[in-house]
Design a protein around this nucleic acid. Structure first.
Lengths: 214, 214
DNA sequence: CCTAAACTTGAGGGCGTTCTCAAGTTGGTG
DNA sequence: CACCAACTTGAGAACGCCCTCAAGTTTAGG
């Protein structure tokens, strides 16, 4: 929410809007690694202008996708407020996956960590806090297995992310099946001892950063 | 097993061996998309020689990694022969994941489909047949949920592949935890109705091909 | 030892992407 | 209206990777 030090000149603001709109369109269909030249062309603006407005890759991603991340955070808020906490947990996972399935760029973003996308990063942090509550509630209700940890959410993310990436075009509902299997494994009644400790928060962050490089 | 029409000249054979060894080393640590120039340099050979021996990317992958795929097929054979068929199923998944975790190139290969890696492709097909038997056996024994389908194996692959990609360096056993969750979801006792039909074999193939392009 | 065929070499052309900058244009303010 | 700062532009430098090919070198076999 960079409260503009000085407002942009009218033409500059117009170009900024065109660029963000273009980025949203191209990210959604082609993913985050669409060439910047393509974004500029789609916006009807020169590549230099793009660099004037968005000096880093992350800053453009931020402007284009922060609102989607924000809506994911809202989902988490609603999930926390759900009385049936297992249902809230399931509902939250389904909503975020739907978001991922509907926007390839958002899907990419979920499995990565762009350090200079500051707004997105801040929102993610808020989401992480809420998610922890969702998880705790579902555990307290006895439906979510007690050995489930925050860090295990990453497994859902990595799994469905890849499934959506692979099948999004031809089998747009395949992720629902993948998620359903995982959910069945998350139920307390299904629990068998786990062979490895959960990931620490910093390990998750590092792992996400590794995926961004590829 | 391209039974050489004419044997290679001695120096050519030596270079071929050097290239395969170099590719194995670099693939294992850096993944399949390591630049070909790097492989040539690592082998101590010029880029032109690499192209003489391996005209396509897939042909080099084939030479470097077919033996690993073959050992995965052997695992499948052993799993079929296991009397406790659920244990065989679990054992097979663990062995293949260990293979993936130990070689980044093999891990990449698992989630992709290089059409010109003929030997690998043939082996994969054999493995798929065996896997079907492993699955059927475990289902017949009543331990694997009845609605589990061949195509669902792709979910395991895509999930653990990404987890290994992300955590391989810093938490080399995280995939065991991920896999354990999935296995708990695969047990017959855990089964809840699935919201989407399984992937058809050709859908899986198409999805794999999509991942290779990225 | 000689020769033809097999093989190696690396410079170089091609391509796609990132990022910069000097020159030109536009917007807002006095 | 005039002027300065803000902004736009696109050519092009830099980079990394792919792949080719003409010239030189090595091997096998007579």
């Amino acid at each position: 929410m960079s409260t503009t030090d000085r407002p942009l000149r009218r033409d500059a603001q117009r170009n900024r809007d065109l660029l963000v709109a273009a980025a949203r369109r191209l990210y959604a269909t082609r993913g985050l690694d669409v060439p910047l030249e393509d974004v500029a062309r789609e916006a009807g603006v020169s590549i230099g202008t793009l660099y004037n407005r968005f000096p880093t890759r992350g800053s453009l991603v931020d402007a284009a996708l922060a609102s989607k991340v924000a809506s994911a955070v809202e989902f988490a808020e609603q999930a926390v407020a759900t009385e049936d906490s297992w249902a809230g947990f399931v509902w939250f996972l389904e909503r975020t996956c739907e978001l991922q399935a509907s926007d390839r760029g958002y899907n990419d973003l979920c499995a990565s960590q762009l350090d200079d996308a500051v707004e997105v990063t801040a929102l993610k942090e808020r989401g992480a806090g809420l998610l922890r509550q969702v998880i705790d509630n579902a555990k307290r209700a006895g439906e979510l297995r007690a050995d489930f940890d925050d860090g295990d959410f990453a497994f859902v993310l990595w799994g469905t992310t890849r499934t959506i990436e692979a099948t999004g075009e031809h089998a747009p509902n395949a992720w629902r099946r993948h998620l359903a299997f995982m959910l069945d494994g998350f139920r307390a009644a299904a629990a068998h001892p786990l062979p490895a400790p959960p990931l620490e928060p910093d390990e998750v962050a590092r792992a996400m950063r590794r995926l961004s490089g590829t």
